[in-house]
Design a protein around this nucleic acid. Structure first.
Length: 732
DNA sequence: AAGTTACGTAAATGTGTGCA
DNA sequence: TGCACACATTTACGTAACTT
């Protein structure tokens, strides 16, 4: 945070007012003059402001003739974000960054997971800055794209420090500079990063997010949306799908071959890169410019409390695209096996169970696998078990056969479930699904393991299974395990595999750190520790991937309860809700190192694999679209998907009907108008006809009169001539 | 050999329908 | 009303065939 008292002390050598000789000299002279005229007011305002700062009240006020004094030492400390301050350089990250052409802009951080004490709806931790993303601190235009030059209109005239919703410059989409604003560091209409927000990671979902670290008022600029300025296709249809990081500027380049320009923050960006989408966002993007620099900032649209996430609405560009997302990968065999392994353990009967499968899958997936949503997993499973045997090929792929077998199991389980539906205590003791899982004809047969099913189901309860999970609630399972825990510690497994088993390619590794999941005789404490371990896994996938890797490089799956039997016994913890749980302090110190090594190992092992999205914490955009697009209606948050579909259909129908009515009405109105017009035209025509007829009649009458007159005149002349002739004859 | 194109496949969305 | 399923459509990816 910049110290305001330092700012307002003023420089020892004030910068003289410039009298420029260019075309803007008049403006500048006027500005300087107006500044000097207004200096009294400005100083009074500053003094009023200073009252709020004790340090300022002790400091001498700036010279009265120059309010616009410059503080270089503050200005060069542009955007000192908390994330940046709290980070250390990690070797792996440095290696990544140093090879980047943007290294001069780059900062990097080491893995560091420290729990945030802020209070909010979600629980956030301070994550490491992802090494795969270059941390930009400034405007970056490597292609020297020239956008239209935007002139400012002199001093913004704000009587109080500029706000983006009140400043005259902001209203004209111009950001302030020292040349058009006297408020310098107090001006909020400038592209700078606020110290009141930080990049955090949601403990539950693992998503990165921008979180308020102090109370935010409406209209505050939180930071600049930094990224690489690049050209885009003018034709929207030709552009690649926006993966959530491309901000298309309203302004295009000038000239006959005008091109759209966007800010691409996919591989490099600032903190605002991590602002997530929300339909009811509490912030918005604001595009403004000054001179040749066009940029975008995130501005709050309402008050935001400490610990709350800052969200923006991405708009339809990101959210409504249909089809396969760019960069999405197909299911690998390992992924399919991982999914099938989970499915055959849970044997999902409905949506809730599939939610469990999804949560389990994403919590235990390998770090380089993309996160999958429930629809994706269900779809894939269905595609697998529905796959027909190709003609001419006798070999069915293992995962396809497994999927078909698992489907049979699910069908059987469904009938078993119906039969035992009236039993009150499903899943307790030897009954219910645990019994079924131990049945050699089912899951264990498929896995080729005989006595591990209960143990592995215990592992599966590390993640929040639904309460109605057929294997019983977490509590019931823990009760069951408590009885054998101490005994198991003393006696090795009958199969000799209790301490772990090899995980190779086909068998997905559910890796757990021995220090993460200690054993305890205290059931509540154990449950807590298990849940905490699960949440840690969910929050930091790379951590989970690392902890089970042996020194030799082999990936082993360990049953950590039995590996570390004594750690938690001394940490009895009261039962708390999932969100309020804190991680075990005993494992806190071990995590950063383990996580870092996992990242390094991951990079070495899969150098060419595409990284998943950081912005959404690895969540693919499709999942976000599901959550944010038309499938969700705020007014029907409680409604099920089907209900939403019906509501949506009804809305669509009513919209259509409304449109038709409007069209009909419009048509009728148009028809009426037409008739009126015709009537008017006809009346006009009649009037014209009448006028024409009258004119013609009058003309004819005039002509007739003229003819009559001519005839009379001729007759008179003839009479006179005859009279003259007669007189001549008489004279003769 | 490198680049381009066509085509099949996979994965996603949207919508309609039927069943319990 | 909730859920599952089928189908149409869209889009990206991978690969073989073709061209330069």
């Amino acid at each position: 945070m910049v110290d305001i008292s330092v700012r307002l002390q003023g420089p020892s050598n004030p910068r003289p007012i410039e009298v420029a000789s260019d075309s803007t000299s008049l403006t500048k002279r006027n500005l300087a003059s107006s500044l000097q005229d207004a200096v009294g007011d400005t100083e009074r305002k500053r003094q009023r402001l200073a009252i709020g700062h004790s340090s300022l009240s002790k400091s001498p006020l700036p010279p009265p003739y120059r309010p616009n004094y410059v503080l270089h030492e503050v200005r060069v400390k542009r955007a000192a974000p908390k994330v940046r301050e709290s980070i250390e350089t990690s070797p792996s990250a440095t290696a990544t960054i140093s090879t980047s052409p943007m290294s001069k802009f780059a900062g990097t951080v080491s893995p560091r997971v420290s729990r945030d004490s802020s209070s909010g709806e979600n629980e956030f931790v301070s994550p490491s800055w992802p090494a795969r993303v270059v941390y930009l601190h400034d405007y970056y235009n490597p292609a020297s794209i020239r956008l239209p030059f935007v002139f400012h209109y002199g001093d913004c005239g704000c009587s109080d420090p500029c706000r983006i919703d009140t400043c005259r410059n902001a209203q004209m989409n111009v950001f302030c500079t020292d040349k058009c604003c006297v408020w310098e560091e107090l001006c909020a209409n400038r592209p700078r990063e606020s110290a009141k927000v930080a990049v955090k990671q949601d403990l539950a979902s693992g998503k990165y997010a921008v979180v308020a670290t102090a109370d935010l008022k409406r209209g505050e600029v939180l930071g600049e949306y930094l990224g690489r300025l690049r050209y885009m296709e003018t034709d929207r249809a030709k552009r690649p799908r926006n993966q959530g990081y491309m901000f298309t500027l309203r302004t295009a380049t000038e000239g006959a071959r005008s091109q759209r320009v966007g800010i691409d923050a996919h591989q490099l960006g600032g903190r605002m890169r991590f602002a997530n989408h929300a339909c009811d966002a509490n912030a918005e993007f604001f595009e403004f410019a000054n001179g040749s620099r066009h940029t975008v900032v995130v501005v709050t649209t309402g008050d935001i409390g400490v610990g709350s996430e800052v969200t923006v609405n991405y708009g339809t560009d990101v959210l409504t695209a249909m089809g396969k997302p760019t960069g999405s990968s197909n299911y690998s065999v390992a992924e399919m096996n991982h999914m099938l392994d989970i499915v055959q353990r849970i044997l999902p009967q409905g949506k809730d169970h599939w939610d469990s499968v999804t949560a389990r899958y994403n919590a235990t997936r390998s770090n380089h696998w993309p996160e999958r949503d429930i629809e994706s997993l269900r779809r894939k499973f269905k595609a697998l078990y529905g796959m027909k045997k190709p003609s001419g090929n006798a070999n069915i792929p293992g995962h396809v056969r497994l999927a078909k077998d698992v489907k049979k199991l699910i069908d059987e389980a469904s009938s078993v479930f119906l039969a035992s539906d009236n039993e009150d205590e499903i899943g307790e003791g030897d009954g219910g699904a645990v019994d079924r899982c131990e049945d050699g004809n089912h899951t264990s047969q498929l896995r080729g393991e005989s006595d591990e099913s209960d143990i592995e189901n215990e592992d599966f309860n590390l993640v929040d299974l639904p309460v109605n999970e057929y294997v019983g609630s977490a509590d019931s399972l823990l009760v069951e395990e408590a009885g054998d825990a101490a005994e198991t510690e003393k006696t090795p497994s009958k199969t000799g595999q209790v301490d772990g088993y090899e995980s190779s390619g086909a068998v997905p590794p559910f890796m757990r750190s021995g220090s993460d999941i200690p054993c305890s005789a205290d059931l509540t404490g154990l449950g807590l520790e298990l849940a905490e371990a699960a949440s840690a896994v969910a929050a930091t996938p790379s951590f989970s991937a690392s902890t089970g890797v042996a020194e030799s490089g082999e990936v082993t799956l360990r049953r950590s309860r039995r590996n570390k039997p004594s750690l938690v016994a001394s940490v009895p913890t009261p039962k708390r809700s999932f969100k309020s749980r804190k991680p075990a302090k005993t494992s806190e110190s071990a995590r950063p190192q383990a996580r870092m090594s996992a990242e390094v190992r991951e990079k070495l092992q899969y150098p060419d694999l595409a990284e998943s999205s950081d912005r959404l914490g690895g969540v693919n955009l499709a999942a976000m679209r599901n959550a944010s697009n038309s499938r969700t209606y705020e007014e029907f948050e409680e409604a099920s998907y089907s209900k939403q579909k019906r509501i949506k259909a009804e809305k669509a129908a009513s919209d259509l009907k409304r449109k038709l009515d409007r069209a009909a009405q419009s048509s009728a109105d148009n028809g009426n108008e037409l008739v009126k017009t015709i009537m008017v035209l006809r009346a006009d025509a009649d009037r014209e006809d009448r006028a024409r007829m009258e004119a013609a009649e009058s003309k004819r009458a005039a002509e007739r009169d003229a003819r009559e007159e001519r005839r009379r005149e001729e007759r008179r002349e003839e009479r006179e001539a005859a009279e003259e002739r007669r007189r001549e004859e008489r004279r003769e």
